[in-house]
Every structure is written in C-alpha cells, then in structure tokens.
Write a protein that binds this DNA or RNA. Structure first.
Length: 482
RNA sequence: GUGCCUGUAGCUCAAUGGCAGAGCGCCUGACUGUGGAUCAGGAAGUUGUGGGUUCGAGCCCCAUCAGGCACCCCA
C-alpha cells in the first residue's frame, strides 16, 4: 500500500479493546502496590547513556537505544531500576529507609519483535530501597504474586534463584571475580547445554591462556606481580613500547597466567554448578538436596540460609508454596543482581515478571554508603494478555436529535446525562432516527435518548432502553432519578 | 543476533504464469419520530516496496520492509 506510513518496527499500536485490558490490569496491580505502601514516582524516559554502561550486562546493554543529541550521549531507558536509584541518590537520600517506590511506564529494548515482545513495552514495578534480606525479598516476591492475583492471572509459576549463593560457592573454590561472573551469567546456558556449553563460552570470552609459562606457586597478587616484573626485566624485555604502562601489562599477563591456575577450579565449579542446576523444583525437596550437595563438596554457603528464610516467609505472606520452584539456572542478564533473583512465568512459559536483589547498585551510582535493595517489574502488556478479557466498556447513552433543529437541545440533554454520571454522546452526522437506533444497537449502547421538537418544547426526553425495547418520557429533572 | 513461514480492498481470504475477485465492514438510498434485518446502489487496489526473468508476473528469482513461529535473551 503506497502512501501509508507504518508504525516503526517493533512498536505496537494499542487499540481500544487491548487498551481496556491493559488499563484494567494496571489498575489492579497498582491498587496492590498502593495497598502495600508503595509511593509512585515518575522518571524520565531519556537518561544519560552512562547510567547503563556498567551494571546492565552485555546482553541487555547491546539492546539499548542510544543516540547523541546536542553533544550529549543519551539513551532511552531499557528498564527502571537504574533510573529509580539514580533519582534516589539525587533526591531521596534524606528519606527514612526502607523507601518503597513504585513506577509504571514505557521502556525500550532493541529486540527481535514477536508476539508480546515489543521494542517499546510498559514496565510496572517497585523497588524497596534500604530493605535487607530476607524480609524485603519475601515481601517483593509475595507482592509480585499479589499483583498477578489482583489482575486475575491464573496458573503462574514463580522461579527463584540466588546469584549471591553461586558467587559465594565460586569464591570458595578460589575463582576470581571475573570468572565468577562469567559462570554465574552462563547458568541459563548450563541448563540447556550442560557444562560443556559453558566451558565453550568461557573459552570464547577469555583470551587464550599462555602455554608453557607458570608462576611459582603460593604467591599472592602483589608478590606475583613483582615476580613477573623482575622476570621480564631480567630478560630485558622492554615494557614501555605500547600504550599501557608496565603495571598494566603485568596485571594483564597475570590474569592470563592465573587463568591456567584456575583451570582445575573452573572444572570443579562447572561440575558443581551442573549438579546444582539439575536440582530444581519445590523448595521442600530442593533445599535439603542443595544442602547435601554442598556438604559433599565440602562447601558452605550462608546464602542458603538466607534463601531458606525468604522461602519460609512466603507462606506467612499468603503465597501458595506450590507455585514456587527453586531454580539456580535463572539467568537474569542484569549484572547488578547480588542475591535472590526471581522470574514469574504464566502457564505457557511466557515471562510476566522478573526481579531480584541488588545490594551494590546504590553505591555504584554514587550513593553515600551501600544500601541494600530489592525490586521487580511486570511486563504490563504480557500480564494483560494472559489476564481474563476486560468486561465490556461502560454502557453509553447515544443522544439522537430527530432533526437538525433539535441538535443544540440534544447537547443540553447530553450535559445533564453526564452530570448524572452517564457516558453520553450526541450524533453529529444528522442521520435519521432509524439509523441512529440501529447504529446504537450495533455498537452495544444501552440507551438512546431521543429528542425531537416535542421533547424540546416540553424540556423532556424519550428514554429508550435498547435491551428491554421499551421507553418512557422523562423531564430533565427526572434524569437525576434514573 | 540465528533459523524458518507469511504479506492481495478497512478485515478474513480467493484467483493453472493469461481480464484482480468474494464475503464481511464502510458510505448512500428505500426510511425526515423508532432497532442488529432486507433490498438497491456506491466508494474502496501501483497485489508491502524495489529490481529481475518472461510475449505476459499476484504467482517464478533476488533484494528490502513488515508480521508471525522456534531459538537467544528478556517483561
């Protein structure tokens, strides 16, 4: 079709039927958030690009709409949490904690469009700033479910994992921060392709280890660095040729060499994680199994106790424990998560909601001191799509002037009806009454107010009930008694 | 980012490589004070777009745009 202009790819026109459903779902959710004491905020759609540079994670960072305008590096927000914490750091550090904040509005991600996957969609969510584990985590989890219940979404499944637990274990296995991260963010892949898939990925991401060179065992970082510097100096290798200074060169070399040392630990970690991922299911069965696995490996994770505490609180929040499934294979590509993470899927596997704990993000955004925080967000369009359809819109009244002479009186009648709280509109096309009636019937209007010369002169109207197919004459004053 | 399927009137869809059609919807009238019906008429298309093959392309080929499906990831 030439001459028409299509919506931009991935953008979505929301027509009345869908909009009704979205508005209904949003109202139901927001009523829950308000009932739990969350205060709404609204924040800019455009943020400094820098806000998303560090903690977002490569996967999502690559999907941020970025642009330069007037010499500024800007971005359309791909999620709300960074904005909320930026605003917290800027304006709300004087507030008593915990601070319960809620939000609703569009976010943008450059993804391949599919059904219910749009490049602009609406997130509705909350952050509990200054809310420590385990209680704030349990509150968030329970609230996420309460919102879905309020929206009448049935059959959803809550999947809970814990990034902090994984990191704790990997730390005990002696893995560097960097390697821990790579493994943690590979968990989703692990579930699909097993350890080998992650090993493969790890190798792709890393530079090749240096063959044939080994550090003397038992040195800490500083000692090893000094040893390397001395060795290179003794070999009369000039380190000042490139753009890096000698310390940087040595640090990089050290990382490569350490990677060799790490190989054994990485293998141990991979097999541990593979078994951990396999242990998914109901908490009652899974938690003891995890504990047994850790005992067997000679590891201990304080986070396991935290996770147990979080899950233990859910019943007291009124959440059906049957809905909850432990799953350490949760990905959650946002790299700022530090503790419990969760996702909620509908019965068909469509993700409706996601969130988790991010204790370092406030500090990373320049906040004074570290503030523990946890939050989650729904995808409003998805929630609305799986919620029961919205009921028919409010029944409207069509005011039908019999002739053009009756039009201004029809407007007065419509004003009276609206003052009474009814939704009234007046035919603007000057159509014959018969057509207005059939039009009103076809649109599903409940009533037609007919005004002609007779009604105009007696300041009355004929009130026709389309369903009952009967009518009576009312004075304008009698409208108030309808 | 990867693989696959599909684009014809507002909508749902027809049309062997040979005249672009139907149903629904929309508009007008029958019908200037009473119903979703009926009847008559009307508007509506560069077959997503751009190339190519062919005497001839909605149909075959290439590209591109858009939608969908399965991945990846996410809400």
């Amino acid at each position: 079709m030439s001459g028409t202009i299509e919506a931009v790819r991935g953008m979505h026109d929301v027509l009345p039927a869908e909009q009704r459903g979205a508005a209904r779902a949003r109202a139901a959710i927001e009523a829950q958030l308000e009932a739990h004491g969350y205060a709404p905020v609204d924040l800019p759609i455009i943020e400094p690009r820098e806000l998303y540079l560090r903690k977002l994670g490569e996967e999502l960072a690559g999907k941020v709409y970025e642009f330069n305008y007037g010499g500024r590096e800007l971005a359309l927000r791909p999620e709300w949490t960074a904005s909320v914490l930026r605003a917290f750091v800027a304006h709300m550090q004087d507030q008593p904690l915990p601070l319960r904040l809620s939000y609703a509005g569009p976010v943008f991600r450059y993804e391949r469009p599919q059904r219910l996957t749009y490049r602009q969609f609406t997130q509705v969510g909350v952050e509990i700033v200054g809310g420590p584990a385990p209680r704030a985590d349990a509150e968030a989890l329970a609230l996420a479910c309460a919102g879905l219940d309020a929206a009448e979404v049935a059959g959803y499944v809550v999947r809970v994992g814990h990034v902090g637990l994984l990191r704790e274990l990997l730390g005990q296995l002696g893995l560097a921060e960097r390697t821990q991260g790579a493994l943690v963010w590979g968990m989703e892949r692990m579930r699909q392709g097993g350890a080998s898939a992650v090993r493969e990925r790890l190798r792709e991401a890393a530079d090749d280890p240096l063959p044939g060179i080994e550090l003397p065992p038992g040195l800490d970082e500083a000692q090893a660095g000094a040893w390397l510097l001395r060795a290179l100096d003794a070999m009369q290798i000039e380190l000042k040729t490139g753009s890096r200074d000698p310390e940087q060169v040595v640090a990089r070399l050290l990382r490569k060499l350490r990677r060799r040392d790490e190989q054994a630990a990485v293998e141990r970690a991979l097999s541990l994680l593979e078994r951990l991922v396999a242990l998914r299911g109901a908490p009652a069965a899974t938690l003891p199994a995890v504990e047994a696995l850790l005992d067997e490996a000679g590891l201990h994770a304080a986070a396991l106790g935290e996770l147990r505490a979080i899950l233990g609180l859910l019943a007291a929040h009124g959440l059906d424990p049957e809905r909850v499934e432990i799953d350490f294979g949760l990905g959650r590509g946002l790299h700022y998560y530090t503790g419990m993470i969760f996702e909620i899927d509908d019965a068909s596997g469509l993700q409706l909601c996601g969130g988790g704990r991010y204790d370092d993000l406030v500090a990373a955004l320049g906040g004074r001191g570290s503030v523990p925080a946890v939050g989650f967000a729904y995808g409003l369009e998805r929630v609305a799509a799986v919620a029961p359809p919205a009921p028919a819109p409010r029944r409207i009244v069509l005011v039908a002037p019999v002739s053009d002479d009756d039009y201004t009186y029809a407007l007065e009648v419509a004003r009276c009806l609206r003052a009474r709280g009814l939704a009234a509109s007046v035919d603007v096309r000057g159509r014959p009454l018969a057509r207005n009636l059939s039009d009103a019937a076809r649109r599903g209007a409940a009533f037609v107010a007919i005004v002609g010369v007779e009604e105009r002169q007696s300041r009355t109207l004929v009130w026709r009930d389309l369903e009952r197919r009967d009518e009576r004459r009312l004075t304008l004053d009698e409208i108030n008694t309808l």
